[in-house]
Design a protein around this nucleic acid. Structure first.
Ligand SMILES: [Mg+2]
Length: 328
DNA sequence: GCGACAG
DNA sequence: ATCTTGTCGC
């Protein structure tokens, strides 16, 4: 069975509000090293995150370099513990991302992260933060600007222009594909400005986004889609298959009103705790009609209960579940 | 006080 | 990031 990573949170992200987060960034920033990459990397990785309800889904992808052959993928699912606040992205995605990278079969020699490195108000974007905690050379590869000023780079792949923030070089606005919007590259940790641009280009394979973060992003979405599908199956199981006498395995283009209402308010786990359908003692019909039947697409053609009347037919499974929940 | 503002 | 159908271009 799939698990949600729990236990002691990554120590380097332990804050409980924006103020503490900014204070921690100021402390950690002093440890960031902008130095040339030691030797040519053998393994590079990319990491990104997606969100589903109250969970963060992080993925780290490992590649050989310079072949850029994908050799490992690590997934981590955790509870979301911090909101998105510009400048504090690391505290939202960082914990899961760091765990994912740590889970790879081989520690990468270079890591790409979807977000800024030192091109940040405190020079501590998510790439710097994660790179420092992991002690891995890291590059921030963002799709848009957080801070800094720059001139539009030439339209050819490889053309670039410096990104300046408060009179200092903060990153590079790099054109990774002819005529396509540039990306914002900035060193995160243990690599320099020049090296981060060279690596971003050499890890590219014809797309705007370098392979490491591009593939990590795709995997993140694929995992999310699979989780949503599993969630739907579990819900259909808990409500329709278990309680509805009208249930049919075939997919229908129409949506059950009671199902829609329930899925918007309760989780499958909460509904699985509902016992076998058993009519409640008192009448909740008016309430349920407003909550569910009002938007039910099966109402006129399939619902004997609504169409012919309570004495003629049985209500659907979702109706029964709602009724049972309301009666307690 | 008003805009800007990674994902 | 997420929501959300179709549509325009290579
Ligand atoms: Mg992302």
């Amino acid at each position: 069975m799939s698990q949600e990573a729990q236990g002691p949170e990554e120590k380097g992200f332990a804050v409980k509000n924006a103020g503490e987060a900014r204070a921690l960034q100021r402390v950690l920033a002093g440890r960031i090293k902008i130095v040339p990459l030691g030797k040519k990397p053998r393994f590079v990785a990319g990491a990104d995150a997606a969100f589903l309800d109250d969970q963060v889904l992080a993925v780290a992808c490992l590649f050989t370099y310079p072949e850029m052959e994908l050799i490992d993928i690590k997934t981590v699912v955790m509870k979301v513990t911090f909101p998105y606040i510009p400048g504090l992205l690391g505290f939202r995605e960082g914990p899961a991302v760091v765990r994912a990278v740590r889970g790879l079969m081989q520690k990468p020699d270079l890591l790409f992260i979807d977000g800024q490195g030192v091109a940040h108000p405190a020079k501590m974007g998510i790439a710097s933060h994660a790179g420092l905690l992991l002690d891995i050379p890291t590059i921030g590869c963002a799709k848009s600007r957080l801070v800094g000023d720059y001139a539009e780079p030439g339209r050819k792949r490889g053309q670039r222009s410096p990104l300046f923030h408060k009179g200092e070089l903060a990153g590079t606005v790099l054109r990774t594909k002819d005529g396509v919007r540039p990306v914002f590259i900035s060193p995160g940790h243990r690599i320099d400005f020049e090296g981060s641009v060279e690596m971003a280009l050499s890890c590219g394979r014809g797309f705007r986004i370098p392979e490491p973060t591009r593939v990590a992003d795709m995997e993140t979405k694929r995992l999310k889609k699979a989780m949503e599908e599993k969630k739907r199956q579990r819900y259909t199981e808990a409500v329709c298959k278990k309680h509805c006498s009208y249930y049919r395995p075939e997919k229908s283009a129409r949506k059950c009103g009671a199902y829609l209402f329930l899925s918007g308010v309760l989780t499958a786990g909460e509904i699985e705790g509902v016992g076998p359908a058993e009519r409640a003692a008192f009448d909740q019909d008016q309430v349920i009609r407003g909550l569910a039947c009002g938007r039910c697409q099966f109402l006129t053609t399939w619902c004997p209960y609504r169409t012919a009347g309570p004495s003629k037919g049985k209500p659907c499974g979702g109706y029964l579940v709602i009724e049972r929940l309301l009666s307690r």
